Amino acid sequence: MGALLDTNFNHLVTPKLIKLWYVIALLLISLQCLFFLFTGLWMATWDNGWAWGLMLIVATPLVWLFEALLVRIVMEAVVVRFKGVEHLRVIKDKI
Results as ranks from 00 to 15, higher is better:
2 G>E: 09
3 A>H: 07
4 L>P: 00
5 L>K: 08
5 L>M: 11
10 N>P: 02
11 H>C: 11
13 V>I: 13
13 V>T: 06
14 T>L: 14
17 L>W: 13
18 I>C: 06
18 I>L: 15
19 K>P: 10
20 L>F: 15
21 W>G: 10
22 Y>F: 14
24 I>L: 14
24 I>V: 13
24 I>Q: 11
25 A>K: 01
26 L>H: 09
27 L>G: 09
29 I>C: 04
29 I>T: 09
30 S>F: 07
35 F>G: 12
35 F>A: 11
37 L>G: 00
38 F>L: 12
39 T>V: 05
40 G>D: 00
41 L>R: 04
43 M>H: 08
43 M>P: 00
43 M>V: 04
44 A>T: 06
44 A>S: 13
47 D>N: 04
47 D>Q: 11
49 G>W: 12
51 A>Q: 12
53 G>P: 03
53 G>T: 03
54 L>M: 10
57 I>D: 02
57 I>G: 02
58 V>A: 13
61 P>Y: 09
61 P>L: 04
63 V>F: 04
67 E>I: 01
67 E>G: 01
67 E>P: 01
68 A>M: 01
69 L>S: 12
70 L>V: 02
71 V>H: 08
71 V>I: 08
72 R>M: 07
72 R>P: 02
72 R>I: 05
77 A>G: 11
80 V>A: 15
81 R>L: 10
82 F>L: 12
83 K>R: 14
84 G>H: 08
84 G>S: 06
86 E>G: 00
87 H>M: 10
87 H>Q: 15
88 L>V: 07
90 V>T: 14
92 K>M: 14
93 D>R: 10
94 K>H: 11
